[in-house]
Design a protein around this nucleic acid. Structure first.
Length: 500
RNA sequence: GGUCCUUUGGCCGAGUGGCUAGGCAAAGCUCUGCAAAAGCUUCUACAGCGGUUCGAAUCCGCUAGGGACCUCCA
């Protein structure tokens, strides 16, 4: 259980994972802001931390995975733009704020399901935890690290930095920050430019608003995560995840808030995934280069040559280490799609082989092949334990694909592996491919009627082939191909099919 | 401007001080009624220049390119 090494953004090194509470793991991941549709960039953290969640459970930890829904909206602190993002858009679309929130929350959940991510243990909303947030702000004021101005509350970063290390996560130096932070309007309320809002006084046109000890307003962005993480995971928990772009100021500020309230640094291991780029540039709304998930699934985007299955996207993400940037392109997705298909077919073949092998006695296999299997299988956990190197697990699986396919095609005998080894191979593939990496086959061939029809067509074609009636046999194959069904002849006159 | 990261073969990408990931694409071969699939084989890279070392793509320095954060951002 203790071989897991994770890269901690705090120390910038890989550390042995030792949970706060033996046998348990608490993980908080910054969830979506449901003011708009999710795009490809958003998919990465949720897939990444889904695999981490699954792997921790695989290791036997009892995991509590908390991922919030930001439905109160982050406000922009500067001047006239100081409006709640969600309420602003609600006016434009003439929708109730909560109607908008509901719509995008549903869409988000739908997308997460498409990606086969497991739902988190708790999915708290920011609006549902206003009380907790106000409570934390009061504590911070009482401790002397926040001040009230015109119904707004700000965190006193300079004062905090005098006793604590503000910048230890992001590597910032407070003096540099004081000089480099942009001088924008509307900041006159703050004592220092680095101070951030804990509570913001609501302008009259601001729809989302709550009563607080400082008047009517809405909470700051950073406080929501601190409040919900503390509530459900305690003052010190194991993992906090999110995109690298949240390192500063969001996570840095979370540390400051929680440290004041709970008298200890909140998180043991900070894990950050890198960005998805497009032409080398971060995909993000500020760059206007996003590809929405719905566009990805439908192919309805100028940069896409076709629609992509959610599993292709998941595979695409997992083929790269989570801390590297991942460059999007249609070609890259096309390659991922083919790769996944190939790997999955090998896995399907393995299932068949395993079923057939039930009849075999447990003769020893070819020592060379046995050793090969053992070598690659033993590498799976090693790779995952080394900071969740999903890319290397997948590469190892590809290494085993030729062996599996050769056995299935009878190029080499099935007895090249002992029954035990074959079963073990199958089990490990199942565990890593399905349970841990969370992948599924793209083809939905579970439909019984379709199975029956296909069997019928294949039987007819076999007869035709036997009579050398290639007109009929080709007609069946070609027409199926037009429908997107690929019929493949196999050794010994057998056939198989896949949906393209 | 400040802080940090990065640069791998046609493309995407893993990784390590010495044992040349993997996928996609391409070419050849085998199998096959034909095709597809599959199998086998080929293409052998680590930005440039210096340094450390018996040995560096991997460590250090410089140069050049790219990027992230410093503002909402996954």
């Amino acid at each position: 259980m203790n071989n897991l090494h994770v890269y901690n953004s705090l120390s910038r090194t890989k550390e042995v994972f030792t949970p706060v509470t033996e046998g348990h793991a608490g993980m908080y991941v910054c969830g979506p802001t449901v003011s708009g549709e999710s795009h490809l960039g958003h998919a990465r953290p949720y897939v990444t931390f889904d695999v981490i969640y699954r792997y921790l459970m695989h290791l036997g930890y009892k995991v509590r995975y908390v991922r919030n829904i930001t439905d109160a909206g982050h406000f922009e602190e500067e001047g006239r733009a100081a409006e709640d993002k969600i309420s602003k858009k609600a006016i434009l679309e003439k929708l109730e704020p909560m109607e908008l929130v509901q719509k995008y929350t549903n869409l988000f959940h739908w997308a997460m399901q498409q990606f086969n991510t497991l739902p988190p243990s708790i999915e708290p909303t920011a609006t549902g935890h206003i009380v907790e947030q106000i409570g934390m702000i009061e504590t911070i004021i009482k401790a002397g690290f926040a001040y009230v101005v015109n119904g707004s509350v700000y965190f006193d970063v300079k004062k905090y930095a005098a006793s604590y290390d503000y910048g230890k996560l992001s590597g910032r130096v407070i003096d540099d920050l004081l000089e480099t932070t942009r001088d924008l309007e509307g900041q006159e309320e703050k004592r220092d430019k680095t101070d951030f809002a804990l509570w913001k006084n609501a302008a009259p046109e601001h729809i989302m608003r709550w009563q607080s000890p400082w008047g009517i307003g809405f909470p700051g962005w950073h406080i929501e995560c601190s409040a919900m993480a503390t509530k459900y995971l305690g003052s010190r928990f194991d993992i906090h995840g999110g995109g690298m772009d949240l390192l500063f100021p969001h996570h840095e500020s979370e540390i400051a808030q929680s440290t004041i309230c709970n008298h200890e640094a909140p998180v043991r291991y900070w894990i950050h995934n890198n960005m998805i780029t497009i032409n080398g540039r971060k995909m993000g709304k500020s760059y206007n280069n996003v590809i929405k998930l719905t566009e990805l699934f439908s192919g309805n985007h100028p940069l896409l040559g076709k629609a992509y299955h959610p599993m292709t996207i998941r595979f695409f993400i997992l083929q790269t280490h989570y801390r590297s940037t991942l460059d999007f392109s249609n070609d890259a997705l096309l390659a991922a799609e083919k790769g996944l298909k190939r790997l999955w077919e090998a896995y399907e073949n393995l299932k068949k082989l395993k079923t057939e092998a039930v009849e075999l006695s447990n003769e020893p296999g070819d020592p060379e092949q046995e050793a090969r299997v053992v070598k690659f299988l033993s590498a799976f956990p090693q790779f995952m334990n080394d900071d969740f190197s999903t890319a290397r697990v997948l590469a190892s699986m590809f290494e085993l694909a030729p062996l599996i396919n050769s056995m299935k095609d009878k190029i080499i005998p099935v007895t090249s592996l002992s029954k035990n080894t074959l079963e073990q191979l199958h089990n490990e593939f199942k565990i890593y491919l399905e349970d841990i990496l969370g992948l599924k086959g793209i083809n939905d061939a579970d439909n019984e009627k379709l199975q029956g029809i296909m069997q019928l067509l294949m039987d007819i074609r076999k007869v035709a082939k036997g009579k050398k009636d290639f007109v009929t046999s080709d007609k069946i194959r070609n027409q199926l191909l037009e429908l997107g069904i690929l019929l493949k002849d196999e050794k010994g006159g057998e056939m198989s099919w896949t949906i393209d």
